[in-house]
Simulated assay, not measured.
Amino acid sequence: MENPSAAATPALSLLERLGQQLSTSATAQTVYGTPVERDGITVIPVARARYAFGGGGGGGTKEGEGAGSGLGAGAGVSLTPVGYIELREGRSRFRPIRSSVVPLVAVSGVVAWLLLRSVPRLLGKRKNR
């Protein structure tokens, strides 16, 4: 009978290599971008970084398949801008980037409400004609 840890070794090795590659890309520069200076103001971009990886493997189920067949792994990185740090006259200030979705939804709701409110008046005028 096969040693279960022997089947897991290739999968673990693959995950370890994947983890090492992701850890080299997870630097402060990934989250805090390159500073830009202009007119005495320095701006440092700030992003939210999300890393995820996983994988797995399984032993062969058919005759002749070796241990470790069916290995798989994947990784993903998501960088989302969240704001910037402004350096001016020896002071720092974080300035968030606001999402425009909330105001857009609010404006759309008000417009829809106004349109629905005017429908009975429009229908009343059509009946009077």
Score class of each variant (00 low, 15 high):
17 R>E: 13
17 R>P: 00
17 R>Y: 14
18 L>M: 00
20 Q>A: 04
20 Q>C: 00
20 Q>M: 01
20 Q>K: 05
20 Q>T: 04
21 Q>L: 09
21 Q>N: 07
21 Q>H: 07
22 L>I: 04
22 L>S: 01
22 L>C: 02
22 L>H: 01
22 L>Y: 01
23 S>N: 02
24 T>W: 15
24 T>G: 14
25 S>N: 06
25 S>Q: 07
25 S>L: 14
26 A>G: 09
26 A>W: 12
26 A>I: 12
26 A>Q: 11
26 A>D: 00
27 T>Y: 14
27 T>P: 10
28 A>P: 10
28 A>W: 11
29 Q>S: 15
29 Q>I: 03
30 T>S: 10
30 T>V: 06
30 T>Q: 08
31 V>F: 09
32 Y>S: 01
32 Y>W: 07
32 Y>H: 03
33 G>L: 04
33 G>W: 01
34 T>I: 12
34 T>N: 11
35 P>C: 06
35 P>Q: 00
35 P>D: 06
35 P>A: 05
36 V>A: 15
36 V>Y: 02
36 V>P: 09
36 V>K: 13
38 R>D: 08
38 R>C: 10
38 R>V: 08
38 R>N: 12
39 D>F: 00
39 D>P: 02
39 D>I: 02
39 D>R: 07
39 D>E: 15
39 D>G: 03
40 G>N: 14
40 G>L: 08
41 I>C: 03
41 I>L: 05
41 I>K: 11
41 I>P: 01
42 T>Y: 02
42 T>P: 14
42 T>D: 03
43 V>R: 11
43 V>H: 04
44 I>K: 04
44 I>R: 07
45 P>D: 08
45 P>I: 13
45 P>W: 06
46 V>G: 07
47 A>L: 04
47 A>N: 14
47 A>D: 12
47 A>T: 13
48 R>A: 03
49 A>N: 12
49 A>G: 12
49 A>F: 08
50 R>M: 08
50 R>E: 13
50 R>A: 03
51 Y>L: 12
51 Y>H: 07
52 A>K: 15
53 F>L: 12
53 F>T: 06
53 F>M: 03
53 F>W: 11
53 F>K: 06
53 F>Q: 02
54 G>N: 11
54 G>E: 06
55 G>K: 06
55 G>E: 00
55 G>C: 03
55 G>A: 05
55 G>W: 05
55 G>V: 02
